[in-house]
Simulated assay, not measured.
Amino acid sequence: MEPVLPLTHPFTLFHTALSLVAILAGLVVAKGLLRNQAMPGWTSLFLSTAVLTTATGFLFPFRGFTPALGTGVVSSGVLALTLIALYGQRLAGPWRAIYVIGAMVSVYLNVFVLVVQLFLKVPALHALAPTQKEPPFGIAQGLVLVLFVVLTVLAVRRFHPRVEATAPAPVRNPS
């Protein structure tokens, strides 16, 4: 069993701080999606810190392909689609749902990693699941997954931002 080490390296602290800001901002954005509120400032903070969290995650030393790298690759793809949907396609048509799903999956992935880190670094949780193959870890991750699936479905149904009219209003027949 590896010892549980404190988060003391400056780069690790920076990456962790980015991740926590991304999670908190992402939860605010998720709340906005559920309330049909766009929240552009929070969205910008969330997406920028989520991108930076993912990017800095690739800078840690790795030996071979790890679950952390796999999560980073998935997160990169999800964030790319989310950014395209919001800024490139302006949430038009199916891009609204792609944005909502991407934003929610991005928050979920950060929370997923948070749960992993909590079970690694918090002694009481580490004692419950030292290899992260024990039921308490699986239950925690399962609950997080179910919660995000439900919230994502609700957010897709509820988030319908106003779209500025780009076509002239139809002409009515004067008869």
Rank of each mutant, 00 (worst) to 15 (best):
V29L: 08
A30K: 03
K31S: 05
G32P: 05
L33G: 03
Q37K: 05
Q37R: 11
A38Y: 06
A38H: 06
M39P: 01
M39N: 05
M39S: 04
P40R: 00
W42T: 00
W42P: 00
W42M: 12
T43R: 08
S48R: 01
T49Y: 10
V51N: 00
L52N: 08
T53K: 02
T53R: 06
T56H: 04
F58M: 01
F60V: 06
P61R: 15
F62N: 02
F62K: 07
F62G: 02
R63S: 15
A68E: 14
G70P: 00
T71A: 15
G72F: 05
V73A: 15
S75I: 06
S76E: 11
S76I: 09
V78I: 14
T82C: 10
L83A: 09
L83W: 13
A85D: 08
L86P: 04
G88E: 14
Q89P: 03
R90Q: 15
L91K: 06
L91A: 02
A92G: 07
G93K: 00
P94D: 10
P94Y: 14
P94S: 07
W95A: 00
W95C: 02
V100E: 12
G102E: 10
A103L: 11
V105I: 13
S106K: 03
V107T: 07
Y108I: 01
Y108Q: 04
L109V: 05
L109Q: 03
N110A: 08
N110D: 02
